[in-house]
Design a protein around this nucleic acid. Structure first.
Lengths: 227, 227
DNA sequence: TGTTGTGAAAACTTTCACAGCC
DNA sequence: GGCTGTGAAAGTTTTCACAACA
């Protein structure tokens, strides 16, 4: 299987996780790793991991496992990390500042090349070595840097307008933290991270798992059983 | 279909989105809404939305649509939002501060009741009306508040230890922002938000969609000059 | 007429089991 | 003996099409 026939999106997300684990293993000098161990470190099933990797073509040695640095490079290549990706970030409030200051992107191939905010109070401040720019400069920076990824961390009310400006200036991928569903032209990829949704899913699953579990030993026999 | 036979997790996540949209519609005085309109606002397919809602039992009127406030309350009830959920947040760096200061949780039924950090420099500062406490007080606060949700925004290196402490003190749900895969006892729900993974998936999907509008293959300006 | 609720079909994803190779 | 790669099975999710109904 070459990577032609399209890699499933679920697999792509896991490949990114494997890459993170493999990078850690490589840094600690590990030479080879088995699917079982890698799967355990990534929190997935070993057979599923092997199926995921099968989309990259054979890349292990039977009876041995995978060579850590080779596999890491292979996945990095498939994910398109041989070149850095330039990103702009719009909305430098608390969350935006956190994202702008987060060092974890750089060593994974993503780099912010522009920070934007509508508030004059914030414009001109710096985060790291980047200045916060006014929204008026968005198009110019996008043109100059050819950034293809836009990150939106604005209030919900303006997120759609920001999205429109980004896409009309040529941005093809958007990561949105504002709690609204964005609509974007065909050909533009949007991913949504909604922190409240995550919490609600957690709370629901907990409720579903066992209604009356009190931290102190309130002995109440659960109907279904425990696991 | 009553809600007995378990609601699929994918559906739960979408219900949380519908709830957000419905809350907005209700606030703007809207009386009823059709599956088509609601689906469009939530970014999903109308038939899928109706199937999702079918897990709650019949809740619309044929030929008319759904009553906005009724449906909102129904979903809120199913998601367990009749009571507030107490959360603790560990790791008050940039991201943690952003989460602690984010107003969007409160009106969705989640409330931080404790903020913790290992750094003496941060302990004692306040965010909103909560003080940042030392890690030593974690168990006492968990016991006193009976918080069942823990949010981890620490560096990757300590996230697993924090997870262990949270779960052994009775936390049953964890939202993890640290870029590591956590292992937790059975019966504890963990959700992972990895910002780099989101960016990598975006970049891959863009690459796969076609190099159509990439005029410059590799020439990404490093931060120095322009930015 | 317009819209919901739902069975049946299609697509996708995960899991299993084992042949094939080291 | 051990581990990968993969076809086939099982399970899940999405989509379609339409009967039921206000």
């Amino acid at each position: 299987m070459q990577s032609r026939p399209r890699i499933p999106e679920a697999t792509v997300a896991r490949l990114a996780v494997y890459l993170r684990v493999l990078t850690g293993l490589a840094d600690s000098g590990r030479g080879t790793v088995s699917s079982g161990e890698l799967a355990s470190a990534a929190g997935v099933n070993p057979a599923g991991l092997r199926k995921d990797l099968s989309h990259l073509g054979p890349c292990g040695t039977r009876g041995v496992g995978y060579e850590v640095s080779t596999l890491r490079d292979r996945i990095a290549g498939v994910l398109g990390m041989e070149t850095a990706h330039a990103c702009v970030l719009v909305g430098i409030g608390n969350l935006g500042s956190a994202l702008a200051g987060y060092g974890g992107f750089g060593n994974r191939g993503f780099e912010f090349v522009g920070l934007f905010d509508a508030s004059p109070a914030r414009v001109g401040q710096r985060i790291g070595d980047l200045p916060i720019r006014p929204m008026e400069e968005l198009d110019a920076v996008l043109t100059a840097t050819r950034a293809t990824i836009g990150v939106i961390a604005t209030p919900a009310e303006v997120a759609q307008r920001v999205c429109d400006r980004l896409t009309s200036a040529g941005v093809r991928s958007i990561l949105n933290f504002a709690p609204v569903t964005l609509s974007a032209p065909a050909g533009v990829g949007v991913r949504q991270v909604d922190l409240s949704v995550e919490l609600q899913v957690l709370a629901f699953l907990d409720k579903q798992r066992g209604p009356a579990a009190s931290p102190l030993g309130t002995a109440l026999a659960p109907a279904g059983g425990m696991a």
